[in-house]
Design a binder for these strands. Structure first.
Lengths: 213, 213
DNA sequence: ACTTGTCCTGTCATGCCGTCAGCTTACCGA
DNA sequence: TCGGTAAGCTGACGGCATGACAGGACAAGT
């Protein structure tokens, strides 16, 4: 599927080349965590990797191109976010647990990849199709699963007939994503206290009623 | 309170100076809407304003500084976002209306200022205190009002005692902000269809029960 | 040892950044 | 009307990042 790793000028990358490439990606990832996206320069990444800017440009067209590569890797991992939902029930006490698991998994994933996710979010919001696709890939696994659950519960008449399952699911997931990336900015609310409240909202949105704890 | 407008090197700005300054801000605003934040250069803004880069640096320390200025102006306007909530009831049919009004106002404000809000969001997420403060200023008016409402309803026993009003309100507002900035990215859900569903979630989160339409 | 293709870097033209000295313009009091 | 003073603007410059290329270093096979 991925084919061979290629340099910008078309050569196939060998063992050493791939190592250098990966090292550049790792250093870029670090830089993203430590300085504003706008200030991340090719030359800094190259220096950190103990190589030269010219080498960087052999493997990536520019900083954005390299970020996209990192994001793809992350998206592949993040597609498994919905794993929690596969075998999770939304009925009774189990529903509360499922909601909690979802929130936990989400916040955890976000904390591990916050710097990269910020950039992906920005790119997507700016209308860049490539970033939007990656963002969708990450979120869709969860949104899709939630949509299915809501649709099912809706057919049982528990939820407002007028509600659009996809819209509700998308909004809930957006909420999780947004809260996750601004966790520190919640003045007066401790992170530990945030989780159950998010779970409460998710449960409310999905099932239409308060959780049984 | 605001004091006089001053140049970077301490001179007080007169009529002409303020006009130039404002023109630079306007052009910056346009550039933010039309190109990725990362690619907005001082020289482009200056050219667009029919002046030189040196002039730009007379009024702002850098691009970020100018963006902060724009954001402050926006925050002043956005602080009125909660106006809808002041005289809005959350009881019965009126509650549904209030929720809809809130969603409407929010999405509208976001659409009018999307480019700037993206940058503020990024800055805040990256940990920049100045951007975080501005973001809080915009959101707090709404969050605060919602928190009060939830607290009140909670005392009447309608909502889960364990819920933290501030956390729930914050999460709902974050949801609105996030959805607003990714409106185009909601595949398969039309914007018009999005609103009532957001209102539904807000109503559910605030009052704990389905709206009466 | 020689060939071949991968891998890296020195170097260069170009362009943006951020600063300064110095010029022009507007305002004001005499 | 006429300087004087401060505001306002810009050309020009050193510094640094970008992005391209050609050529040298290196590993592997023969």
């Amino acid at each position: 599927m991925t084919g061979q790793v290629r340099t910008v000028d078309g050569r196939v990358a060998g063992r050493r080349g791939q190592a250098t490439r990966q090292k550049l990606l790792d250093c870029l990832s670090e830089m993203l965590s430590s300085s504003p996206y706008r200030d991340v320069k090719v030359i800094d990444v190259a220096r950190k990797a103990g190589t030269s800017p010219a080498t960087f440009y052999q493997y990536f067209p520019d900083v954005e191109g390299a970020v996209l590569e990192l994001a793809e890797q992350m998206a592949a991992e993040g597609a498994g976010l919905a794993g929690v939902l596969e075998d999770g029930s939304w009925i009774g006490r189990a529903g509360w647990q499922t909601a909690q698991n979802l929130v936990d998994g989400f916040l955890d994933f976000w904390r591990r990849n916050d710097a990269l996710l910020r950039v992906v979010d920005l790119g997507a919001a700016e209308g860049d199709k490539r970033f939007a696709r990656i963002r969708a890939k990450i979120l869709n696994s969860v949104t899709g699963s939630l949509t299915a659950t809501i649709t099912e519960l809706q057919s049982k008449g528990r939820i407002d007939k007028d509600a659009n399952p996809a819209a509700v699911a998308g909004a809930l997931v957006a909420m999780l994503a947004s809260v996750a990336s601004h966790q520190k900015g919640f003045q007066g609310v401790k992170p530990a206290e945030l989780k159950p409240n998010l779970a409460l909202l998710v449960h409310l949105g999905v099932t239409g009623k308060k959780p049984t704890r």
